[in-house]
């Protein structure tokens, strides 16, 4: 059974079919790429499967469970975490606290236990610190744990966003243009990180990307969106040599 199975997904904004009868099937452990020209509906698709928008029609199955129409919080709990095209960190919080916010639903104690500093507060906070530092170490951010998130350099902010998403222990990780604004060196590092995450966290990853050098190296399978519709899908090399895809990207 596929981890994510989307069938006939559509959303209309007025007369605009932003995503039109789109289907996708992602197996567990796959590194899947979603590409397409600007305005093709890629981010809209992410917003649909994370519950930011409610689809006009179609179904979304995660691990066999129907999550169509659920809200963002329920979908995160069901096992989808994401990063954003324009970085959205908790700016005033430290790097460590950003990750700990991601751990929020996995390590619990009540507000009263926090206010009165009961034993469970210390125990849970300690466990959270350890888990968060372990995650930060993976992204080579553990030295900056006490730095304010907004003071991190751009590349590290992107990494922190991935770490925060992973902290929720998702089954599926969505990356929205992870390499946007990165220099070639940072992009190369990011590719390593993405592979590392997939292998060491047993993660399934779906990413949107414009950087073809990253897509062709990292992704195993691709789907191409054009004007909200599926243009073609399949193995990366086959898709990238498809004349229709080249036309969509480069024009005739």
């Amino acid at each position: 059974m596929a981890l994510l199975e989307v069938k006939g997904l559509s959303i209309n904004f007025g007369g605009l079919h932003a995503v039109d009868d789109f289907s996708i099937k992602i197996e567990k452990g796959e590194l899947y790429g979603l590409i397409g020209p600007n305005g093709a509906g890629k981010t809209t698709f992410f917003n649909l499967i994370t519950g930011v928008y409610k689809p006009t029609s179609g179904t979304i199955l995660l691990d066999g469970k129907d999550i169509t129409g659920k809200n963002t919080i329920q979908i995160n709990k069901a096992g989808i975490a994401r990063t954003f095209q324009n970085i959205r960190l908790f700016k005033e919080l430290s790097v460590l606290d950003n990750v700990k916010a991601g751990l929020h639903n996995r390590y619990k104690y009540s507000t009263a236990e926090g206010i009165f500093r009961l034993p469970r507060f210390f125990k849970t906070e300690k466990a959270m610190d350890e888990e968060a530092l372990r995650l930060l170490k993976v992204f080579d951010l553990d030295d900056e744990a006490s730095v304010k998130a907004s003071n991190l350099p751009y590349g590290k902010q992107r990494k922190l966003e991935i770490a925060r998403a992973l902290a929720t222990k998702p089954k599926l990780l969505l990356l929205d243009e992870p390499a946007a604004g990165m220099n070639p060196h940072e992009t190369a590092e990011l590719m390593e990180t993405i592979r590392f995450v997939r292998d060491n966290f047993d993660m399934t990853i779906l990413l949107i990307e414009h950087d073809m050098s990253l897509v062709s190296v990292v992704c195993e399978k691709l789907s191409v969106l054009n004007f909200g519709q599926l243009l073609c899908e399949g193995e990366t090399s086959t898709v990238l040599s498809n004349p229709e895809v080249i036309t969509a990207y480069l024009g005739e």
Partner: peptide
């Protein structure tokens, strides 16, 4: 505390806070 961190996360970025299940 855990609650305060969640509250400040919501203050800093509501959309991201929802995306991590707050």
């Amino acid at each position: 505390s855990r609650t305060g961190r969640a509250v400040m996360s919501i203050r800093d970025n509501r959309i991201a806070a929802e995306s991590v299940g707050l």
